[in-house]
């Protein structure tokens, strides 16, 4: 069973995503801020990371940096509330994320993208 780490400060969003992904048979780990995110990357050894960009304590960009350093092969999907601020999108892609989903988003669509990435 593949393990997915979800880093997102809005609990409702993250549980929605978690609910949807569980339905597809993934194991999920939920954390609610940047610091916990960094710890979870080190501890959980996930197969995929879904992260927000703007969060308390650490930005998503920092998390991507860290993840790429510790787990260079694990794909990352960015879930952003920034709208289409192109600088952030560019920076994220530069750092090697596989997908960038701007909010508002559809959890079903997210699930499809997750499936494609993990196949």
């Amino acid at each position: 069973m593949k393990k997915i780490l979800i880093i997102e400060d809005d609990l409702l969003i993250s549980s929605l995503v978690q609910f949807r992904l569980k339905k597809d048979g993934y194991e999920t780990v939920l954390v609610k801020d940047g610091n916990e995110g960094i710890e979870a990357i080190d501890a959980e050894n996930p197969d995929l990371i879904i992260t927000d960009v703007m969060m308390p304590f650490r930005s998503g960009i920092e998390i991507i940096h860290h993840a790429k350093k510790v787990l260079p092969d694990v794909p990352i999907i960015v879930l952003s509330s920034l709208g289409e601020e192109e600088e952030v999108v560019l920076e994220a892609f530069n750092l090697g994320v596989v997908d960038f989903i701007p909010k508002p988003f559809n959890p079903n669509e997210l699930a499809i993208r997750v499936k494609r990435v993990l196949r």
């Binding site: 409702l12 509330s81 508002p104």
Partner: peptide
């Protein structure tokens, strides 16, 4: 609050 917050971040038939 929760419904409005979710509505802002959701797309499609969820809205």
């Amino acid at each position: 609050d929760k419904i409005i917050g979710l509505n802002k971040k959701m797309k499609g038939d969820f809205k």
